[in-house]
Simulated assay, not measured.
Amino acid sequence: MRITEQPGPYRDLETRSAGELLTLINEQDRLVAPAVGDCIAPLTDLVEAIVPRMERGGRLFYIGAGTSGRLGVLDASECPPTYGVPPGLVIGLIAGGDRALRDAVESAEDSEAQAWKDLEPYAPNTDDTLIGIAASGTTPYVIGGLQRAGEAGLLTGCVTCNPGAPVTEVCQHPIVAVVGPEIVTGSTRMKSGTAQKLILNMITTSVMIRLGRVKDNRMVDMKLSNAKLVDRGTKMIVESTGLPYEEARRRLLETGSVRHVIDGM
């Protein structure tokens, strides 16, 4: 039986108090970070393979179904405001389309051909990377998409929580975070989902840093989309240049970029 489908470690949950349940969930969540830590070596190989492709203009695609698909769309959607990259650089696709972000479209994951059909409008090429996300590692939508992408010459990877799962056999860079059974048996939105989110964050953050989208430890290319971010950007400039706050803010609003202000000093 797949690890993600094995019985949870605690029984008779309905008899537990709220405090007990929260404690047990927290105990299980503590297992996630070490499991992700065990993935550093294969993650390093994947990131080092992605960066030169993106330097040549390649894109990063995520595909997944259910929770896994939503996590991919979430990670992709956060890259433009955080790093100032165009929306088409990191793209998340979920089985069932955008409707599946809010409403479960569970049968959508059963088609092996659909993921590549969803990718075709983007005209994928050999500088692109496709990462399939599937906690179980058995999702036909993801497996089929990775198989077709590999045949087309894309760099391929996967994020799963089951060693030896079928998805690991159809990609070049399998990332396997073994977090163990869920407290509610099979509910992979919990530990497995947490591990997947950590890994996706690690991939895009590392890639963006390597692409030069971070200066020191600052998001100097972030979009100034609200007052909080304008204030954050102003303080970055003050710290880097010694300008008074109001002058830093004025220059920031004129140029629209923390990087431009700092580099122009």
Rank of each mutant, 00 (worst) to 15 (best):
G132M: 00
D38Q: 04
P81H: 09
H173R: 12
L46I: 02
L71Y: 00
T139A: 15
G88W: 15
P166G: 15
V179H: 06
E120R: 11
Y141G: 08
P121K: 13
G164T: 09
G92L: 09
A177R: 13
P42G: 08
T82P: 03
P42E: 03
C161P: 06
H173M: 10
E169Y: 15
I63L: 08
P86M: 10
L60W: 02
D127F: 10
P166V: 15
G164E: 14
I133D: 12
T129I: 08
Y141N: 10
G145N: 09
Q114W: 11
Q172G: 07
D38F: 01
D103I: 15
E48S: 06
G66N: 11
P80T: 12
G164L: 11
G96W: 15
T160G: 05
V176W: 10
R59W: 09
G58T: 01
D103M: 12
A113F: 15
Q147S: 13
I143A: 03
G153R: 09
T129N: 02
V105K: 10
L74P: 01
K117Q: 15
T138K: 14
G157C: 04
L43A: 01
L130T: 05
D128V: 04
G150L: 14
F61P: 00
E78V: 08
K117P: 06
I175S: 04
L101D: 11
G164A: 12
L46D: 00
P80G: 08
S77T: 07
V105Q: 13
